[in-house]
């Protein structure tokens, strides 16, 4: 473990908590893409299947349980409890256009063909694009609640910090996992224009609005 990965995991945890609190406190999931949350739940489910038979550390196991539980709790809030506030008119990204390419790619480019490894590879590719329905929804509505922009910033920062963690591990432990690094860079790049808007607008106290 290194400080970059720890900060990344904390950002990730903060993002998930901020989203849950936003929906719970405002009793509304307006502006939140349920489709992205479905993809995230799928990412954690396929990535953490080893939760039950490989023990890395208490921290590792606890975080996996938290990510799994919170992602399903978020789905419950969006699609069951506050279903009436779910903005399905704007959450229209065709996630099959993400799922199918990720399945194909994970069969073409993977470290090995064991079921756990294939699921892990699939989850890495899917995580890279899981935010697209949310970013698409924000572009359709042209704006996002400030709390939602904080959620997106923390979520984007988590994988950006993981890239720093991979650079650090490359030089200190000769560790490198090309699949995770390439997908992580793509994932972070997808947030680039959002980061720009967030820093130039939200941090200056303005609303998060896309230029018309």
């Amino acid at each position: 473990m290194n400080i970059f990965r720890l900060l990344g995991d904390i950002c990730h945890l903060v993002a998930i908590i901020v989203l849950l609190l936003k929906i719970w406190k405002t009793r509304s999931c307006a502006g939140i893409s349920g489709k992205s949350q479905i993809l995230f739940a799928l990412v954690y489910t396929t990535r953490y299947v080893d939760l039950f038979f490989t023990y890395v550390s208490l921290y590792n196991s606890v975080m996996k349980v938290i990510f799994l539980a919170s992602s399903y709790a978020t789905l419950y809030l969006i699609y069951v409890k506050f279903k009436a506030t779910y903005d399905f008119n704007h959450d229209t990204f065709r996630i099959e256009f993400l799922l199918i390419p990720c399945v194909i790619l994970s069969l073409l480019i993977t470290h090995d063909y064991s079921p756990v490894e294939l699921l892990w590879t699939f989850s890495i590719y899917l995580e890279a694009v899981a935010i697209l329905p949310q970013l698409f929804m924000v572009s359709k509505t042209g704006e996002a609640e400030t709390i939602t922009s904080h959620y997106l910033f923390a979520l984007g920062a988590y994988r950006a910090l993981y890239i720093v963690n991979w650079i650090y591990r490359y030089y200190t432990e000769s560790f490198i996992d090309g699949i995770a690094v390439v997908a992580g860079i793509i994932q972070t790049i997808l947030y680039a224009d959002f980061f720009y808007l967030y820093i130039t607008k939200v941090l200056k106290g303005k609303d998060f609005k896309l230029p018309a």
């Binding site: 990965r5 995991d9 990730h12 080893d50 490989t54 890395v56 550390s57 590792n60 975080m63 996996k64 990510f67 470290h111 892990w120 993981y162 963690n165 490359y170 000769s174 560790f175 490198i176 996992d177 090309g178 995770a180």
Partner: peptide, 10 residues
């Protein structure tokens, strides 16, 4: 530069 056998990242 290999990748580790065990996945220790979240």
């Amino acid at each position: 530069k290999a990748k580790p056998a065990q996945k220790d990242e979240l």
